[in-house]
Design a protein around this nucleic acid. Structure first.
Length: 579
RNA sequence: GCAUCGAUGGUCUAGAGGUAUGACUUAGGCCUUCCAAGCCUAUAGCCCGGGUUCGAUUCCCGGUCGAUGCACCA
């Protein structure tokens, strides 16, 4: 919590509520903590943020989007570790009724291995510990698991357990075999998903930062484990500078250092090229949606902070004047953890066959037993003998094998030894997964908070949202200076023209012109077109820049093209030359 | 979940045991040739449930939501 900054959060959330960005959910019934509604402008803005994300990951990287259900059967989350691992061991203090993390109580009482004890052992272990809240000795308590997943049942009879997904990632893992076929059995490939995830947070607070239902945009990139240092497009970001805060820097309490991705990989600061590539891509993406570079850093997880599946993990943190540094994106190397787990749980192999450039010739010794003799002699044991014999190292006299702890001598005349030359064409490998995971709601909050500004215009305070033109919900406003002499008709025609080009334009003729400018400043509309009396003579209109309030005249015919370019950020207002 | 504090039109706010003040916003009109101007009119409010009381938005209890602290995370 940053002192003295409360008003920014309150002002921006007040504006968000008033103007239709963010609302408390089902407000008429009294809202529910951890859930929000996106209002008309918020939903539009969020969609634009998601579309920018799609531009980066789907269009540019070529990782197609899939859409899986938000509910999945229990087995999926048994494999992923969420049924067991996504819960906290809790107990309640019998004296002050405080809910406590049982393992934390144990650690506080110097009890070793608390994290791997079962609930009963843990309950026994902490009987003599003191409650950190009221200082009373706990005595007999019950330790229970509080799982952060919402559970439900599938179908009538309530027999099948289902969970609301706590992350979108599992959908991409369980579809692995299909995805691999779709990408014609070649690595690397990726799949992405933008959708809702659910976590039954114990105590959600902080508006949009900690939600029980939230939107994630996740990419799962499947790579050959030996190729993690060979991202095919790495050179795009090799010289890209990103402020990194390594775990060593955190331990020494030093500031982040700007470093190129090439150096970060070469100096082994970032584990591999893939992780570095998505760190840099994430930096560029966050800047694109309007995060200020000076309020952005990448923090490496401390070794004991990393999730059970990750070897290296970096969080993009955005500085909030309200909440301090907020984790907004996580970029993790999940290794083969997930695919191994799902392959084991489901029985479906999740491997990729990698062909060698040239088949490897290997000489192999094959042992071919004379089964007609061995079968009769050893009967039920014959099958096991056959299996052991294949692995045996026979000599002139025969082979010694061990079956059921009994050493058996098989004479050389009961099998034939052949030396064969085999072609090994390739091998099955389990890909590793690089996962950039974005919290869309947190990105939206950061965008709103950073966009909020008050300046002084003509001696009065002007509230303006400096939204990046790419995420502003309304893309252009169109005003007739006066509602008469046909100015309103021209303005209306211009609005229609924008609509035909897919540009979200809003017509407004209500109140004084200055008021209309202010209204659109407040919702971040990047530019406003005004039809005035000169329009009728020269077919030109003024276009006003939200940030500088400057206006220039341009021909009506050029409007759609110019506004489109402004919204795409391919030109800036400052570069426009007056006609 | 627990502890502390809070809740009055869309927003900010005044107020009292007898249904509520003002401003801004919004809508309609007048006026207006480029930055929240002016005038007229209108719309709209005491978080929910229970108790005390003739009467509660006000006092009491419980709840909901929000803010702060404990714990987890995108």
């Amino acid at each position: 919590m940053i002192q003295g900054s409360d008003d920014v959060f309150e002002k921006v959330m007040d504006l968000a509520k008033r103007r239709g960005f963010i609302w408390p959910t089902s407000e008429c019934y009294g809202a529910v903590a951890g859930f929000i509604d996106y209002g008309p402008l918020g939903a539009m803005m969020k969609r634009r943020v998601e579309d920018i994300w799609r531009n980066f990951y789907v269009i540019r990287e070529g990782y197609y989007e899939i859409e899986c259900p938000t509910i999945a059967q229990e087995a999926v989350f048994i494999a992923s570790g969420h049924v067991k691992g996504f819960s906290d061991k809790m107990c309640q203090c019998p004296h002050c009724k405080e809910y406590l993390r049982a393992d934390h109580v144990a650690e506080g009482g110097n009890i070793l291995n608390a994290s791997i004890m079962n609930n009963n052992d843990l309950a026994d272990a902490i009987t003599s510990c003191k409650c950190p809240a009221c200082e009373e000795v706990l005595g007999n308590v019950t330790v229970f698991n509080f799982n952060l997943m919402f559970s439900t049942t599938i179908g009538p009879g309530s027999q099948r357990i289902g969970y609301l997904r706590p992350e979108t990632a599992q959908g991409m893992f369980v579809d692995f075999a299909r995805l691999l076929r779709f990408y014609r059995d070649k690595l690397p490939f990726g799949a992405v998903q933008i959708g809702k995830s659910y976590r039954n947070e114990i105590s959600p607070r902080q508006g949009m930062i900690r939600l029980r239902e939230f939107t994630q945009a996740e990419a799962e990139i499947f790579v050959h484990p030996d190729q993690k240092n060979h991202h095919p497009s790495f050179k795009r970001y090799a010289e890209y500078l990103v402020p990194l805060l390594t775990y060593v820097q955190q331990q020494n309490c030093t500031d982040p250092v700007e470093i190129t991705m090439r150096e970060a990989v070469d100096q082994k600061i970032i584990a591999n090229e893939y992780v570095a590539y998505y760190v840099a891509l994430t930096h560029e993406l966050l800047i694109t949606i309007g995060i200020k570079p000076e309020r952005l850093r990448f923090r490496q997880h401390l070794p004991d902070e990393r999730a059970h599946y990750a070897t290296d993990c970096w969080d993009a943190e955005v500085f909030s004047r309200r909440f301090g540094w907020v984790e907004t994106v996580g970029i993790a190397d999940r290794t083969d953890y997930d695919l191994k787990a799902h392959a084991g749980q489901s029985g479906t192999p999740m491997t990729v066959f990698i062909q060698y450039d040239k088949p490897k010739k290997t000489e192999r010794q094959r042992i071919i037993p004379n089964m007609s003799v061995l079968g009769k002699q050893y009967r039920t044991k014959a099958k096991m003998i056959f299996a052991e014999l294949e692995k045996a190292m026979p000599t002139q006299e025969g082979a010694e094998i061990v079956v059921d702890g009994e050493t058996i001598h098989i004479p050389a005349n009961l099998f034939e030894v052949r030396n064969e030359v085999m072609d090994i064409r390739g091998e099955d490998i389990i890909p590793h997964v690089i996962e950039p995971s974005y919290g869309i709601d947190r990105m939206c909050y950061a965008v709103l908070e950073q966009a909020y500004d008050e300046d002084i215009a003509d001696g009065e305070t002007r509230t303006v949202m400096h939204l990046s033109p790419g995420v502003a919900p309304v893309q252009v406003a169109v005003f007739p200076l006066m509602t008469r002499d046909g100015l309103d008709i021209i303005a209306d025609e211009i609005t229609q023209t924008f609509h035909k080009r897919g540009i979200l334009a809003e017509y407004d003729d209500s109140g004084a012109i200055g008021r209309r400018y202010r209204r659109h400043d407040e919702i971040g509309t990047p530019c406003a077109i005004t039809v005035d009396y000169e329009t009728k003579e020269s077919n030109t209109v003024t276009i006003r820049d939200r940030d500088t309030m400057q206006q220039i005249r341009i021909p009506i015919t050029k409007l759609p093209e110019i506004v489109r370019a402004l919204v795409d950020r391919s030109i800036t207002f400052a570069s426009l030359s007056p006609e």
